[in-house]
Nucleic acid binder design. Structure first.
Lengths: 231, 231
DNA sequence: AATATTTTTTAGACAAGACTAAAAATGTTT
DNA sequence: AAACATTTTTAGTCTTGTCTAAAAAATATT
């Protein structure tokens, strides 16, 4: 008599930290494009070499989280998308936790969340979610995928695309580098504030806006990195 | 003209996850003995092979966190002790966090804390410490080292060493395996409860105690794993 | 003190993940 | 379509951390 043992491979997660980082990078890169994600794009995103990427995507293809045809780039499978989304979920929930509960500023959370996102415990992340009151967005305005990896996309435009007299609410940043976030802090620009476009300068694409009841001029680079929800 | 670059190796931590696990194991094993910690003891603690241990302790000796002489076992240096103590600090603070803030039971925290203890961010752990109100003990009654790695030892005895009519307070467990902790839960024995020894049985070293105003008989195995603070 | 046993170390191998350099495929020009 | 440029892959190497098997040292036993 022999007992059959069912291996529950999907118990929590079967991916190494490195594999998770690749999945997340491909997920982020693939979200915009309909085509496959190129080896070089992945290498650039992860600050690694194309040859290392080729090695890893072969491994991930064997694990059925992505489709790989030589020289054709890669595409995540449904399983791959879900796995990646759940890592993103963890990352963003930890960011909210750090800001809401531990007095981190929004420019300090990234590196720590980058580590915390790899902690394997579904109870842990669900309890964090509950502790925070099931937030739907992280401190940079990015949406938090639900427990199934689905995310509720919200309509948003870059500030730079608004026309004169249009108004909206500042709901996110495209560039979430510490330097940009610190710049916004200095200018007292924060998410949730109301914005109105007063003037646009053709010469350098700068624009004059009223934000938080203060009038100010922002460069195109700034306007290109602030997401606005149209009212 | 050449700029001199000072490398701040001590920034946060220069140890790999594996190195940290070895340091912690040696720290725990060395706390009791005055002699060095043997290769085999480390291998057993980490469920690895003696040959792997030899490799690693050579590397750690090169990094000046321990003293190693062939066939003589190892001893942590002051730097090694501090490094290890700070990992233990993180582990125990995370355990408190999980129990106090995330509804974990004391028998569920170990594996998750084992992962969380490797997160590198001094701000993170200090904020967790503050959020918890600077606790001095973890959920199993073990002391939490301070930011310098020092720990305040408290006088405690095993329940098994108490004599008839002696009383005390249950303040910790020696064995913190899930099965022992679940057993205590079932018996409604918890830290903080008052204990009085009513009877001791010479035959099997079991003892009858009054705990939490309930009379019960506990085996020697139990009494050997419960720490009592004498009143 | 000699032998047996246990512990520890060495030597060599392996897997994961990264790298360099060169080859192959694809894309772009003219 | 041929030549050039870019991207991607392959082949081989390296590091970290692990392992097995065998050798060496320390400890225990007779």
């Amino acid at each position: 008599m022999q007992k059959i043992i069912y291996l529950h491979y999907k118990f929590d997660s079967m991916f190494s930290q490195s594999e998770e980082n690749y999945l997340k990078a491909i997920y982020h890169l693939g979200i915009t494009s309909v085509n496959g994600v190129s080896t070089n794009a992945i290498a650039k995103k992860l600050s690694t070499k194309a040859s290392s990427v080729t090695d890893m995507i072969k491994k991930l293809a064997d694990k059925n989280v992505l489709i790989y045809k030589k020289y054709q780039g890669v595409k995540l499978t449904e399983e791959g998308k879900k796995t990646a989304a759940l890592i993103v979920r963890k990352h963003r929930l930890w960011e909210v936790f750090l800001v809401e509960k531990l007095n981190f500023n929004w420019d300090e959370v990234h590196d720590v969340a980058e580590q915390l996102e790899h902690i394997k415990s579904s109870k842990l992340i669900n309890e964090i979610d509950a502790l925070l009151g099931f937030p739907k967005f992280d401190p940079h305005g990015d949406p938090i995928p639900d427990t199934n990896g689905n995310l509720h996309l919200i309509e948003k435009k870059l500030l730079s695309t608004l026309h004169i007299n249009e108004t909206g609410i500042c709901i996110g940043v495209k560039d979430s580098s510490a330097s940009f976030l610190q710049f916004l802090d200095k200018q007292q620009i924060a998410l949730g504030q109301e914005v109105e476009v007063l003037e646009k300068e053709d010469f350098d694409d700068s624009m004059t806006i009223k934000i938080n009841d203060k009038k100010m001029t922002v460069s195109n680079k700034i306007a290109n990195n602030l997401y606005i929800q149209k009212q």
